[in-house]
Design a protein around this nucleic acid. Structure first.
Length: 491
RNA sequence: GCUCCCUUCGUCUAGUGGUCUAGGACACCGGCCUCUCACGUCGGUAACAGGGGUUCAAAACCCCUAGGGAGCGCCA
């Protein structure tokens, strides 16, 4: 494909295609999709969706050493889980080497690039020398006018302009100006013939008609180089938006030691994708005082120009809060399905107890994650191992015996079809009245007896979830515990 | 070292020269609700990095300082 071919005027259809917004997410498959990348992807996605444009996924795998198929899968899995569906791709750069080489050859033919065979030692010495003189290390253009035998090993460097400046009107940062004297002649093709990142990105962004390049701000310093290459290719540069990075809770760069960084680890930890998305969109962006956004709201309200310039710290507490909000408001049937998986992870068979949907309705407001939801709901499906020591000490005392005995008798007489909150509540209430005690004096020992802890949903719902059989069994166990304690001389 | 960038409560943020004795959210603390724990609800603590300008007026504009970050690869 020739680069500078004069074309006839675009048809209306083509013109529309040119005008339409096209964004991309271009991860390199050298690891998992982490939250920083996910947010960048989200911003790109939102920008495209908001403008009725197209969202392209491109895999930047030119580094054959570090790229892996597992990473590609992990990234795709993360994207799918978050629901960030792309319209085109994934495109793989390794499949486009021919195209990159065509561009490089063209640049070479027009003397906008040149061969360089500077040995590593020379480059290293140069670098040291420049550092010693307190200068920015950069290539000195030694091979600019040398004629290097194409047959001998060499790299190809881009002939960067020596004068002038490059102006980037960044959608987020505003105008940033770079002087060409700060830039050097970067390598665009390695000795092994493979193209480097800066070349591949530029060719792809141009070929794929990307209109807004939304990426991490660690790329801002690459932008002037890329614009220069684009201009050499005769292509009008796209708009750029450099989003700030995400830091860990402690303000340091996000890394493994901060715990979960991969998107998938959040899924496994029991977060809902919409909660993570909502959390991420509010990191560096806001719309007045609004905290909760549905995906549709994000699409209509998001504006890349409103993204903050400063880096922000990831705060798990706030994510937890949002996740709980979504756990409470999501369709219980859907949450129940997810809960089944997490119960399974605890070795629990969800069919051996109440319908998980009932559990979700009863417990959602008590859990921050699905993992926590499963943990605090395990008592519905299997007998707990031990009583919480504090709870047992406080509530499973001889004074509670009479209440438990009466409750047991009342429950035993109840028909299975009456084992629902209303009758159960009346039953507990009646025992309290008989003993002339407050409800708490009766409900708390009962709760500890059947849950093992002093915290659970309302006692009636708790009884319903535990079921008649297990309730009677656990009351017996509590009575035995009390008797044993008494025998030991405990009060 | 050089280049570029950033700086409002602990954290995420609102704020686009007067409506700011700086608003919201998370977290934290306290009250209420209540059979427990949550939820909910009401209230509270808490910030314009520092210094100079510009202006009648500055969190907002300019400069300097400090602190922080990114980049400076035949990595992306």
């Amino acid at each position: 494909m020739p680069l500078l071919e004069s074309r006839p005027c675009p048809t209306p259809q083509e013109a529309r295609a040119i005008m339409t917004v096209r964004t991309r997410f271009a991860p390199s498959p050298t690891g998992y999709l982490h939250v920083g990348g996910a947010r960048t992807a989200l911003f790109s996605y939102l920008h495209a969706r908001k403008h009725g444009g197209r969202f392209v996924l491109r895999i930047e795998d030119t580094d054959l050493e570090r790229s892996s198929a597992e990473s590609v899968n992990a990234i795709l899995e993360g994207m799918t889980w978050l629901g960030l569906d792309y319209d085109e791709g994934p495109f793989y750069q390794t499949e486009r080497f021919e195209r990159y080489n065509a561009v490089i050859e063209d640049l070479l033919a027009r003397d906008l690039a040149y061969r360089c065979d500077c040995p590593k030692v020379r480059l290293e010495a140069l670098r040291e020398e420049q550092m010693a003189e307190k200068q920015k290390p950069r290539y000195d253009g030694h091979c600019r006018d040398r004629q290097i035998d194409p047959a001998s090993p060499h790299v190809i460097r881009f002939r960067n302009p020596l004068v002038g400046q490059v102006v980037v009107d960044d959608l987020i940062r505003g105008r940033v100006v770079f002087s060409n004297t700060e830039l050097d002649d970067l390598v665009i093709r390695r000795t092994d013939g493979s193209p480097t990142y800066n070349l591949a990105v530029v060719v792809d962004d141009a070929d794929m008609g990307i209109t807004q390049v939304i990426r991490g701000d660690d790329h801002i310093n690459n932008t002037p180089r890329q614009i220069n290459i684009l201009r050499a290719m005769g292509v009008e540069p796209p708009q750029y938006a450099h989003v700030p990075m995400i830091l860990g809770d402690d303000g340091a760069r996000l890394s493994k030691r901060h715990g979960a960084v991969s998107v998938i680890s959040y899924r496994d930890a029991g977060y809902l994708p919409e909660a993570l998305l909502n959390y991420l969109v509010r990191l560096g962006w806001s719309h007045g005082d609004q905290e909760v956004f549905s995906l549709d709201e994000m699409i209509t309200l998001f504006d890349i120009a409103n993204v903050n310039k400063a880096a922000s710290s990831f705060n798990t507490e706030k994510l937890d809060w949002l996740n709980q909000e979504y756990l409470k408001s999501a369709d219980p049937a859907r949450v129940a399905n997810l809960l089944r998986t997490h119960l399974g992870a605890l070795g629990i068979d969800p069919t051996e107890g109440p319908d998980p949907e009932l559990v979700v309705v009863a417990q959602a407001a008590r859990a921050k994650t699905l993992v926590e939801l499963a943990e605090i709901s395990a008592f519905c499906y299997r007998d707990f191992a031990d009583y919480d020591p504090e709870a047992a000490k406080k509530h499973l005392r001889p004074v509670a015996r009479e209440a438990l005995v009466r409750l047991r008798a009342a429950f035993e007489m109840m028909a299975l079809e009456d084992w629902t909150p209303e009758p159960l509540h009346r039953g507990v209430e009646r025992v309290a009245e008989e003993l002339e005690e407050k409800l708490g004096k009766v409900a708390q020992p009962l709760r500890v007896a059947i849950v093992g802890r002093a915290a659970s949903p309302g006692i009636d719902v708790t009884l319903q979830l535990v079921g008649k059989e297990a309730t009677l069994r656990r009351i017996d166990r509590a009575l035995a515990f009390i008797a044993n304690r008494e025998a030991q001389g405990g009060a």
